[in-house]
Design a protein around this nucleic acid. Structure first.
Length: 450
DNA sequence: TGAAATGTTGGGGCG
DNA sequence: ACGCCCCAACATTTC
């Protein structure tokens, strides 16, 4: 049984809808192999799930943990209704390996900084719970009033082959077999397929974090030092995920705004042309445009690219990071409240780090460092494919003659830069420095005083 | 898991 | 041989 809300379904961008649909299609197929099938209900979970449980006389409803306020409230209502009806509500810990209150500082307070959290997390390594056992048998109920089937649900688009539990298992096997060893070397290069590509499966519930963790750990035990390093780096990324879930659980207000109070009143730009150029991938900065086009086309973006475009939106266009967070959430097939919010706050400098608001990525340097041969740009910005690697991240340095020779013209096939990074960088420094507004106390340089 | 500005060092060219 | 300058390379500070 799956319950779908129209508001979610229609807000999702096409790749995300298709990924979800293929996950459900695969689930239906797997159920049918066991003589059962998937039923769908359309509406609000608070009403539909108790109604379905009643109609099917369910002994219990199983779910996995949620940690944002809205979902917690929804689950609380469902659990109350089920209790009245005499059904059990069973929450399985499968969204994370450790929940918010399981790893705390010696003071009893939750961690707010990643590194101490990671150190504590590693101390708990032996207590990571094992994967859940497979379901042994499954009932084959007949439909009740309100039940429908997947193919009768409109607005889903066609399925894509990447989604689903079967694809997730294959992907994990393949990654552990051939991708994991080189993960630390390749994971930061967006032009290379060097990441696990498991995030969408984790976010859509088509693979368990427990399964991923233990598959990877198991390989570490028999790996050479070089490979073990790679596995450590991968597990570190899983711990980032755990960290942001822990932040969400303990500080649920982060979904409403900045973690740090002093950054809640920043004055952001409302330049809609800039926001549209960012969304469509027409900013004139090749690495930014490549990334935003990848998101549109695939519903996925390489993590390094996510940091670059997030820095560009907030630090070069001065647009509220929450608008970017929303855009990502609607488009990403791996949309995940905790990681998405944590990542945006990290880049915007409003999050848990000490004071990184001056962390401003240069789109040119990031491109040259992490896409040195321009493969990523060439793939998603084909109008620049003819440029030599030395200038592909800064096409504006080419003279009009050289542009013609490379088969494009700035301002015609590919846009001029919508802003100048060097200038906007200084604007951002001022914006964040004066974050308390004109009423705030100006900080004086001690050297100037003495 | 920045980047730029500023400071320091050390080697080579040269008078 | 020596000091001076230049500057690349590296380190530190600042935003």
């Amino acid at each position: 049984m799956v319950c779908l809300r129209d508001e979610d379904r229609y807000r999702m961008a096409t790749p995300r809808r298709r990924f979800l649909r293929s996950a459900l299609t695969d689930l239906d197929a797997n159920l049918r192999r066991s003589g059962s099938r998937l039923f769908v209900r359309l509406g609000r979970p608070q009403e539909e799930i108790p109604a379905a449980a009643l109609a099917h006389r369910a002994d219990a409803v199983y779910t996995t943990g949620v940690y944002d306020t809205a979902s917690l409230e929804s689950d609380r209502r469902i659990a109350a209704s089920l209790k009245r009806q005499g059904s059990a509500w069973v929450m399985l810990k499968d969204t994370v390996l450790f929940e918010g209150k399981e790893i705390l500082a010696a003071s009893g307070m939750p961690y707010r900084v990643f590194t101490p959290y990671r150190n504590a997390w590693v101390q708990h390594r032996a207590d990571v719970p094992p994967p859940f056992p497979a379901v042994r048998s499954i009932a084959s109920p007949s439909p009740r009033v309100g039940d429908t089937t997947l193919h009768r649900v409109p607005g889903f688009g066609s399925p894509c082959e990447r989604g689903g539990e079967s694809a997730a298992s294959r992907r994990l096997k393949e990654f552990v077999r051939s991708g994991l060893d080189s993960y630390s070397r390749k994971r930061d290069l967006p032009g290379i397929d060097g990441t696990s590509r498991l995030s969408a499966h984790l976010a859509n519930g088509t693979i368990s974090i427990r399964t991923v963790y233990h598959a990877v750990r198991e390989k570490a035990d028999r790996a050479k030092t070089e490979e073990r390093k790679s596995i450590e780096v991968f597990i570190n990324e899983l711990i980032w995920r755990e960290f942001y879930y822990q932040i969400l659980a303990n500080f649920p207000f982060v979904v409403e705004g900045a973690f740090r109070e002093e950054f809640r009143r920043l004055r952001w730009s409302d330049n809609e042309e800039h926001f549209a150029a960012w969304r469509e991938g027409h900013t004139g900065y090749p690495i930014v445009d490549a990334a935003m086009r990848q998101l549109r086309i695939e519903g996925w973006m390489h993590n390094r690219a996510r940091m670059i475009v997030a820095s560009f939106l907030t630090k070069d266009l001065h647009i509220n990071w929450q608008r970017g967070e929303r855009h990502f959430f609607d488009h990403l097939i791996d949309a995940d409240i905790a990681s998405n919010n944590g990542g945006w706050q990290w880049t915007a400098g409003t999050g848990t780090d000490a004071s990184p608001w001056f962390r401003i990525f240069s789109p040119v340097l990031q491109g040259e460092r992490f896409d040195p041969d321009g493969a990523y740009v060439r793939r998603y910005v084909p109008e620049l494919a003819g440029l030599p690697s030395s200038v592909i991240h800064k096409p504006w340095v080419l003279s009009p003659g050289d542009q013609r020779a490379a088969g494009f013209a700035l301002g015609v096939e590919y846009p001029e830069r919508i802003v100048l990074h060097e200038e906007e960088r200084n604007v951002t420094l001022d914006l964040y420095r004066n974050r308390r507004g004109s009423s705030g106390r100006r900080r004086t340089n001690p050297k100037e005083v003495s």
